[in-house]
Structures are given as structure tokens and as C-alpha cells.
Simulated assay, not measured.
Amino acid sequence: MSVRGIRGAITVEANEEHQILNATIEMLNTIVAENEIVPDDICSVFVTVTGDLDESFPARAIRQMAGWELVPLMCALEVPVKGSLERCIRLMVLINTDKTQAQIRHIYLNGAQALRPDLSKS
């Protein structure tokens, strides 16, 4: 078994608590479904937000999901590069799995599809 990282990103339209929390849940649920994982498979989740999202901690949404109470979570600010994508939440989900790197499905939703068009689904 290996530890693999699953990347995910999503944008929100406004710096509003409910949008941040709902987008985080949407992204994580999509990562879980696409990669067929359960909370017990998770080593940890690292969350970053762009500096323009300061109405809520995205990890708060994850902590309220059933079965995720014990998963280690960490939030941080994304590096503030000029001209980079705004209002973006990113996840790095580390999992224990027998899947190969090629079998991992990274998830980019909404405006975040621009970050990795090679991995984004239409």
C-alpha cells in the first residue's frame, strides 16, 4: 500500500461563508466519489485558500461531515502570485491506497479547471 496525493480545486463567486463551505463539501465529495475512498483511507487533508477568501475556514465544512471528525486537517493561505486565480480553494488529500498514480483522479471544478485543463472534465 502507498500514500498518494489527490489534488482538487474549486472557485467560488463571492467571499461568503456559505459559498466557501458548500464549495469545499462539493469538491471533497467529488474527490471521494471519483476515487472510491472512505474517511478511514485518509491520512490527512491540506487546504489552501487565496487571500481573498477570509469569511470561513474550509476545514470547518469537512469537520462537520459524518466520519471525518478524526481526519487531520490543516488550512493555509495560497502563495499570493500576481495574476493568479482568485477566490480559489485547493485541497491535497493524502490517502492510503493500492492505486497507482495513473489511477488517481484529480478534481478541478468551476473556474479552477483553468489550473489543470489536462485533468479537468467538461
Score class of each variant (00 low, 15 high):
2 S>E: 03
3 V>R: 09
3 V>P: 12
4 R>M: 02
4 R>S: 07
5 G>D: 13
5 G>F: 09
8 G>Y: 01
13 E>H: 05
13 E>F: 02
15 N>P: 01
19 Q>Y: 09
20 I>M: 09
29 N>L: 11
29 N>R: 10
30 T>Q: 06
31 I>H: 03
32 V>D: 07
34 E>M: 09
39 P>D: 15
42 I>T: 02
44 S>Y: 12
48 T>G: 05
48 T>Y: 11
49 V>I: 10
49 V>L: 02
51 G>I: 13
52 D>H: 06
56 S>Y: 06
57 F>H: 07
62 I>V: 12
63 R>P: 07
65 M>H: 04
66 A>W: 13
71 V>G: 13
72 P>V: 07
74 M>T: 11
77 L>M: 11
80 P>C: 07
80 P>L: 04
81 V>E: 14
84 S>D: 15
85 L>G: 01
86 E>G: 15
87 R>E: 01
87 R>K: 15
87 R>C: 11
87 R>L: 06
89 I>H: 02
89 I>G: 06
90 R>K: 14
90 R>N: 13
93 V>Q: 06
94 L>T: 15
98 D>F: 05
104 I>V: 09
104 I>E: 00
105 R>L: 05
115 L>T: 14
118 D>Q: 12
120 S>C: 14
120 S>M: 09
120 S>Y: 09
122 S>T: 06
